[in-house]
Design a protein around this nucleic acid. Structure first.
Length: 206
DNA sequence: ACCGGGATGGGA
DNA sequence: CCCATCCCGGTG
């Protein structure tokens, strides 16, 4: 008897540590097109990253690590890049990729992904999504769809259950940038064009 | 202990 | 536009 399996062969290979050794603004753009994968007992779910935001740490009033603020929550950002920084926003878990070298607490927020694997599992987890685009077109939506939780805090992104693979190429001409979302109380930082997205993609948050 | 705010999402 | 809902961080 054959068994349905939510697996792809070969499994998308994780990006290695050298990928994360680039400046945060470059990383935020390089992450566009990369494949974000999460494995749970419901199978592997994955999506192409289509929208990101850079948070520039000590110099960025919108960043949780502004002025080098170090708390239990921000601690992971002070370590090596390539780790998961998750935190709770209202009722949602938001997912960031830690950037910057040790003691340079920067991060890239993932704001939108395009479903690639496990769409039916995502739909089950996001019953309120009325259209396909609503499944994963926001930072809180995509964590719910992918099954990313606070349990993923601090985990390195080069192995299951949560990892990032090369995915597909996004040309520079397809990339767009503009001010970040939801940081109106961050003074001049609110206008910095540190949000990046794939032009015309249906899974952009706004 | 208490209290206020927030990198959101969904519904009126 | 409003608000649910909740963890974290600052304060006392």
């Amino acid at each position: 008897m054959t068994r349905r399996r939510n697996l792809v062969h070969p499994l998308p290979e994780p990006l290695d540590q050298s990928f994360y050794n680039q400046s945060t603004l470059q990383l935020a753009q390089s992450l566009l097109g990369k494949l974000l994968l999460k494995e749970t007992d419901e199978g592997i779910v994955a999506g192409f990253i289509v929208e990101t935001e850079a948070y520039m740490g000590p110099e960025d009033r919108a960043a949780h690590s502004f002025n080098n603020k170090r708390t239990k929550r921000t601690a992971i950002m002070f370590g090596e890049p390539g780790y998961a920084y998750t935190y709770v926003m209202h009722t949602h878990c938001l997912f960031n990729v830690v950037s910057g070298s040790v003691d340079d607490p920067k991060a890239v927020l993932i704001r939108g992904v395009e479903p690639y694997l496990g769409q039916s599992v995502m739909e089950k987890r996001r019953p309120k999504a009325r259209k396909l685009s609503q499944l994963t077109n926001g930072p809180g939506k995509l964590t719910k769809a992918l099954g990313i939780t606070m349990d993923d805090y601090g985990n390195k992104l080069d192995h299951p259950p949560l990892w990032i693979a090369p995915g597909r190429t996004v040309e520079d001409e397809q990339m767009n940038s503009g001010p970040r979302i939801g940081i109106d109380n961050s003074g001049e930082a609110r206008d910095y064009p540190w949000r990046f997205w794939v032009d015309g993609n249906a899974f952009i948050s706004k």
